[in-house]
């Protein structure tokens, strides 16, 4: 699984990145987590609010930081 955290460096984006890495590690999910900070790259996903979470090329969340439970559900689905 390929997970991307999109965000230009705002506090919420950092929180989402940290939380994602935590959940991946805790549940030993087989995934690579990358942070995308380049705005041109980010805009390719057609989002208008950051942070956003992309799993295997699909935007699953945008504009907010989910709870740990919700994030776990998104990542293990």
């Amino acid at each position: 699984m390929e997970i991307k955290v999109l965000g230009t460096g705002c506090p919420k984006c950092k929180t989402l990145e940290r939380l994602t890495r935590e959940v991946v590690e805790k549940n030993s999910i087989d995934a690579s987590v990358t942070k995308v900070e380049d705005i041109v790259e980010i805009m390719k996903y057609n989002i208008m609010s950051t942070p956003a979470l992309v799993i295997d090329g699909k935007v699953v969340l945008k504009g907010r930081v989910p709870s740990e439970g919700e994030l776990k559900e998104l990542l293990t689905k």
Binding site: T8, M43, M48, S49
Partner: peptide, 17 residues
């Protein structure tokens, strides 16, 4: 509309597009 100044850039670009 939910807005935070850190999202001003993606929002601006999205509107222009």
């Amino acid at each position: 509309t939910p807005f935070c100044s850190c999202s001003a850039i993606p929002l601006f670009l999205g509107f222009v597009q």
